[in-house]
């Protein structure tokens, strides 16, 4: 009897601790989310309500005008959006494909010089972007792609990280599968397109999503290689907008909301892939 009672007490105690922990963690996560919550709520406020204290987490008198203005005034937030979408989508499709192609060569075709090239990739990964900005700026000027979207798209197509991530996955595909296909007379190209690409959909999707967020958030390349306002991507257009907005904080928050919401949508739609992708890239890498 006592043993059963003991177990019951222990279970109740465990449940209590667990509930307490849950509340504690929920509060902590709200604290971290609070800038974003404040951003969204402020984007619906009138100018006069922005800094009222205690903070209005839910605006007493919500308005849509900030959002409407952000999207319709001459500064062309819609245009920044189209530019960003264009670049991000091209890279989201192109970069994983090119990386997968190389990853197959690095993992499934043994040939002389392969490991030397791979070592070179490892070295290149250590060089910070900042080292490359100056020479790229000069080269793009010579190549006549400075101040065009090509300056962001072309270099973005080639990622070391993507090759690593997909190579890792390809190495886990059993050799028996490709050997069986070889015996059936298939070459490397058929095996790659008809066997490996379909098999690696999850890892390709994961990388595509990570790459999309990188491109979407990429501020530095846009800052250095784009000059014309009509070419600006969201981060650069956003900065431009913020500096012009001055003290129109509610407008600024509406613009920030416009920049963050697509990422939030991508996050909640692809949560499984994203979290898996980020964790596996670190633990196995």
């Amino acid at each position: 009897m006592d043993a059963i009672k003991d177990r019951k007490i222990r279970k109740v105690r465990e449940q209590l601790t667990k509930s307490f922990n849950t509340i504690l963690m929920a509060l902590a996560s709200l604290l971290l989310l609070s800038p974003m919550i404040w951003m969204i709520s402020t984007s619906f406020k009138k100018a006069i309500d922005v800094f009222t204290y205690p903070i209005q987490w839910i605006p007493t008198d919500p308005v849509w005008t900030n959002h409407i203005k952000v999207w319709t005034t001459g500064d062309g937030f819609a245009m920044f959006y189209l530019n960003s979408l264009k670049i991000s989508l091209v890279l989201m499709i192109g970069a994983p494909l090119l990386a997968a192609f190389a990853a197959y060569g690095f993992s499934r075709i043994p040939f002389k010089g392969r490991d030397a090239v791979f070592l070179l990739y490892l070295c290149l990964m250590m060089i910070p972007q900042q080292v490359l900005f100056v020479p790229k700026f000069i080269m793009f000027d010579w190549m006549n792609i400075y101040n065009t979207h090509w300056a962001l798209i072309l270099p973005g197509l080639f990622t070391v990280f993507g090759v690593f991530m997909i190579r890792q996955f390809f190495m886990s595909i059993p050799h028996e599968i490709s050997e069986a296909a070889f015996i059936d007379g298939a070459g490397h190209f058929r095996i790659f397109f008809q066997l490996f690409l379909p098999l690696s959909k999850p890892v390709l999707a994961t990388f595509a999503i990570i790459d999309f967020t990188w491109t979407w958030n990429d501020y530095e390349n846009a800052l250095i290689f784009l000059l014309d306002k009509r070419l600006f991507t969201v981060p650069l257009g956003m900065q431009n907008f913020m500096l012009e907005a001055g003290v129109d904080y509610n407008m600024m928050m509406a613009a920030a909301t416009a920049g963050v919401v697509p990422l939030l949508i991508v996050f909640f739609l692809g949560q499984k892939y994203i979290i898996q992708g980020f964790s596996s890239s670190a633990v196995k890498g």
Binding site: L32, L33, P35, M36, W38, N217, P235, A256, V260, F267
Partner: peptide, 12 residues
Amino acid sequence: PYFTSGIAIAFV
């Protein structure tokens, strides 16, 4: 918050 962090959040 990590996933969405960037220029927009910096301005927030």
